[in-house]
């Protein structure tokens, strides 16, 4: 299964506005994307399009997360979402 790691760049972590922007973008992808903290088992990964899941994940600035997806367009979707995580969304 294609996967990517990304380092959270937003100052407030994956909360508040950054979480909303990321969840919305994940929901717009053609494939289902999951998110987990690096080192967590893949079957405990959460739905990346769920703002509530993102909030309970509690990823802070500098934390590394793993994104996974499967199917047509998975690679493109992951690349787009990694780029988003590695942008400081609090500054946008």
């Amino acid at each position: 299964m294609p996967e990517r790691t990304a380092t959270i760049a937003s100052r407030s972590g994956l909360h508040a506005r950054p979480a909303a922007l990321f969840a919305e973008a994940a929901g717009e992808q053609p494939v289902e994307v999951t998110i987990a903290m690096q080192g967590e088992p893949a079957d405990e990964a959460l739905d990346a399009a769920s703002i509530l899941s993102l909030m309970t994940l509690g990823a802070a600035k500098g934390d590394v997360v793993v994104l996974r997806a499967e199917g047509d367009g998975a690679d493109a979707a992951l690349d787009a979402l990694v780029a988003l995580l590695e942008t400081d969304l609090d500054a946008v």
Binding site: A16, R17, I51, L52
Partner: peptide
């Protein structure tokens, strides 16, 4: 605006 946007997303949240 930010709070309302986040609240809107919660309404159709898959986890919920």
């Amino acid at each position: 605006k930010a709070v309302l946007e986040a609240t809107a997303l919660m309404a159709k949240d898959t986890m919920l």
